[in-house]
Nucleic acid binder design. Structure first.
Length: 448
RNA sequence: GGCGACGUGGCGGAGUGGUUACGCAGCGGUCUGCAAAACCGUUUACCCCGGUUCAAUUCCGGGCGUCGCCUCCA
């Protein structure tokens, strides 16, 4: 096998990871944009987390767990957070910074709980933006010193005209963007496309000291600073939702390459597609805004995970209850077949599918064709453990009573008292227990 | 308005210039006291219109439809 290939937004082609200049199989590095922690994560947020967790697991399999470094940040500086913090601070008469810390810590904790339930491994590093303000300030200072950025009216702005290839990720020219612009331009900007690296904070807004006065960083600079601190100037894969291509990732590239003498930020840029719910765009006004946390009350995390992987990560995906039921059914069947296997192995076709731009639907199709050993190995590589599914099925049920009822029914069947045996079966069914008679005896599961 | 993505059988969903995707559901069968489960077999496809080609679902052009992004800002 020639190693994995991934669709690169930068080149619009499937690029071989190992052919990238500077690729080091002893230190494979990936960065994924993490959550802004001010509210529960929703099902759309779950998609990149799951998709890139599978990528992380694939790379660990290919190069060894010790040789893959995965960074997923937590954004705990943001004006949406500040707005929420201001409300809380006013309502409870506490300091706005204390409110910000409270919100972001509670939300970050909840987020980690949620994604753990989805079967995601913890990344190698989970940096918080607030711990890297010093690095951000240093990077901004470098950009100013080298002429890529300028201070104006308390702000520091990146001057896009100084970066000749600005727009290369989103494939737009400055002229096109200017033509399409429909927003009023702030007076301190030299060019309408210039974006904020640093902005001033008033007394009621969280802020940090800087050469340009007390203020806070712009949105994009945190990822550039954290990636540089933890992965170095250039790394292998940068991932995120397709909505981040512009402006977020475009601006990350501009800043990082500007501050790093033109060295590429990431060699391969991967973007997952959007997610709809029951055919509709998810939004609070439509009432179909589904948080991961709510879903986990009704569904095992593994089912959510599997459902997500049935669609290729770049395709638009429709999340439906019908699909979730189908996913649960498949997983149940597979666990029954794979659990007794002591010596799992990874199938060639399965691995080839994952190496072909993370084609999880193809990989799943290969598992349908595979024997039990390869099924068990594939489930393991994709991050399925059966822990939650088992809990969801058996939790809070009096299994001793069920076992007694099954024994009584089988005794009745043996005595050919089918009226009694059917009565017992119906009684169990009324309580949501479905019986399955197999060659090795009777088993049961919870009816859905 | 600008840029981009997508459109496959009842449903989900890969892929390909000519050969079965796969899964669910349906249908038929094996098994079972019956049912469920399990297992075996099986029907239905490539948005529309042109073009290229011996051959197009697959390439090119146009159309229609769905969706995303367009910068600190809700």
């Amino acid at each position: 096998m020639s190693g994995p290939r991934f669709f690169n937004t930068l080149t619009k082609a499937k690029d071989a990871l190992e052919a990238q200049p500077g690729f080091d199989r002893a230190r494979v590095r990936m960065y994924v944009c993490g959550p802004t922690v001010y509210d529960f994560a929703h099902i759309g947020n779950a998609r990149p987390v799951i998709v890139f967790d599978v990528l992380f697991r694939l790379l660990r399999h290919l190069y060894g767990p010790a040789h893959v470094v995965y960074v997923r940040n937590i954004t705990d500086i943001d004006d949406k957070i500040n707005a929420r913090a201001a409300e809380i601070a006013a309502a409870r008469n506490i300091d706005v910074e204390a409110a910000r810390v409270e919100i972001t810590q509670a939300t970050a904790r909840q987020y980690l709980e949620d994604v753990t339930a989805l079967g995601c491994l913890p990344p190698t590093h989970t940096p918080r933006a607030t711990d890297y303000v010093r690095e951000m300030v240093a990077m901004i200072a470098t950009l100013v010193a080298d002429g890529f950025a300028y201070a104006a009216d308390g702000h520091v702005l990146f001057e896009v005209a100084r970066k000749a290839d600005y727009g290369k990720l989103a494939r737009r020219s400055l002229d096109e963007m200017l033509a399409g612009a429909r927003v009023d331009v702030a007076p301190y900007k030299r060019n309408a496309m210039d974006f904020v690296l640093w902005k001033p904070s008033d007394d009621k807004t969280p802020g940090w000291d800087s050469p340009w006065g007390r203020g806070r960083p712009g949105w994009h600079i945190e990822c550039s600073a954290m990636a540089a601190a933890l992965l170095g100037e250039t790394f292998d894969i940068h991932g995120g939702g397709i909505d981040l291509v512009f402006p977020h990732h475009e601006n990350e590239i501009a800043q990082s390459e500007g501050a790093h003498h033109g060295y590429a930020l990431a060699r391969i840029w991967m973007h997952n597609g959007f997610l709809n719910v029951e055919g509709e765009k998810m939004s609070k006004s439509l009432g179909n805004f589904v948080t991961i946390n709510e879903l986990l009350k009704d569904w095992p995390g593994e089912v959510l995970r599997f459902n997500m992987l049935r669609t290729h990560y770049r395709q638009p995906m429709d999340w439906t209850v019908a699909g979730m039921n189908e996913s649960w059914k498949t997983l149940e069947k597979w666990y029954a077949a794979a659990e007794p296997i002591a010596d799992p192995r990874i199938g060639d076709a399965f691995l080839a599918a994952l190496c072909d731009d993370l084609n999880t639907p193809q990989a799943i199709a290969e598992l349908h064709k595979a024997d039990a050993r390869e099924l068990a190995g594939g489930l393991g590589l994709l991050g399925f453990s059966n822990v939650q599914l088992r809990i969801a099925q058996k939790v809070a049920l009096d299994t001793a009573w069920i076992a007694d009822a099954i024994a009584a029914r089988n005794a009745a069947r043996k005595a050919r008292d089918f009226k009694e045996s059917d009565r017992l079966r119906d009684e169990l069914l009324a309580k949501g227990i479905v019986l399955k008679d197999g060659p090795d005896g009777t088993t049961w599961e919870v009816k859905r």
